[in-house]
Structure formats: structure tokens, C-alpha cells
Amino acid sequence: MDLDPLYMLEVLPQLLKFLPVTLLIAVASMFFAILIGLFVALIRFLRIPVLDQLAQLYVSLFRGIPTLVQLFLIYYGLPQLFPFMTTMDALTAAIVGFSLKESSYLAEIFRAALTSVDGGQLEAGLATGMTAPQVYRRYIIPQAAYNALPATGNIFISLLKETSVAFTLGLTELFAEAKILASASFRFFETFLVVGLVYWLLVIVYSWFQGRLETRLSRAYVR
């Protein structure tokens, strides 16, 4: 068997140089996905006419088209229609693509989470003279966020790993760098094993933080 453990140690620091790119794509996409997802979820939850139908179409569209196709449409397709978009770099395209895709999943998660908050609290707030936006901001959305936390965490974990398809836009992130190193050294197994372990470790570290957050927030919900 031909396995070079020393090479694995050598290649690790080289790979880690590209960890920030991967993290940037994941965190930025997640940030925008949460904003868009919350907006779409509120439209659907409040059943705002016309916007609700558009929101349904949005969710169905971005959940229905494969991620890779979406990224290609944005990066290679859109500049053909809108020439000013040729200046868009691959990083921006990746973040836009992932944000749209994940927001469509989050919208459904958030909507379910909003639905599961006991609606009597809205009436209680209104009855003491609060406005509906006050009640949403103070009570409904925070409780929905707690309900949505586990599912949202799963979305982030899958996003962390899915950033690896960004290499197809010519973007050098963790996985793209692994491919480059592997084809130079012909040490495919070692390189891809190391990069796989890096992703795995990321997921473990993130899960640990999420677990702590859930415990901390559960104070108000578990007796």
C-alpha cells in the first residue's frame, strides 16, 4: 500500500491558507440567506396577497434547480443578458448563488417556526397597547428563531460543505486548492483525505458551538 503520512502533514498548512475563502463564502451566504429567508417567511406567514404567491414561486424555483445550474446561470448566464454583470467576480457569484438557494430552504424552516409560536402572545401584546411590529420583534421572532435553530444549523452545515462546488466557477477555495495540489503531487488519496478531514473538523467545531447556544437559549423553554 502506498500511503504517505508525511505528505499529509505537509499539505495541511498549504490547504489551510484557503480556509478563509471557504468560510467567507459560507458565512456571507448564510448571512444573506437568513435575511432573505426571514423576509420571505414573514410574507408567507402573514399571507400578504400577491407577494405571497411570488414568495411561493421563489421558494419553489430556488429549491427546484440544482445548485450547480444556479451558479452557472448567475456567473456565466447573467452577463450575457446584462453586459454590466461581466465585472462580477466568481466570489460574488458564488455568494449570490448560495444565498438564494439557502434562503429558499430557510424561508420554509422559518415559516414553520413562526407557525409554531403560540399566537395568544400576539393578542396579549396588542391588548396591552403594543403594536404588531413590536410584538413580532420582541416575542414572536425570537421564539421562532429558537424553534428554527436546529434546522438552520443543518442548513449551515450542508452549506459549509457545498461551498466546494464553487471551484467550478474557477474560484480557489479549500477543495479547488486540494485538486491543484493533488494533480501536482499525484498524491490524490492523501490530499483529498486531508481536505475531507478539514471539512469534518469544521462541522464538528460548528456543531459544538450550536449545541452550547441551544443549551443557553433553552432556559426559557425547558422546565
Binding site: 393578542e123 396579549a124 401584546g125 413590536q134 426559557a220
Partner: peptide, 25 residues
Amino acid sequence: AMVFQGYNLFRNRTALANVMDPMTA
């Protein structure tokens, strides 16, 4: 003000905060 059959307290707030909130709002 209204008192409901099901209490309808704000579940993410302590008892004290439940009473403070209508005032701070």
C-alpha cells in the same frame, strides 16, 4: 387590559419582564 383564559404570557421573557414590557413599550 385583558386577562386570557390561557394566560398568554410572553414565553421568552421572565415573569418580571412580562410585567415590565408593556410599560417600556
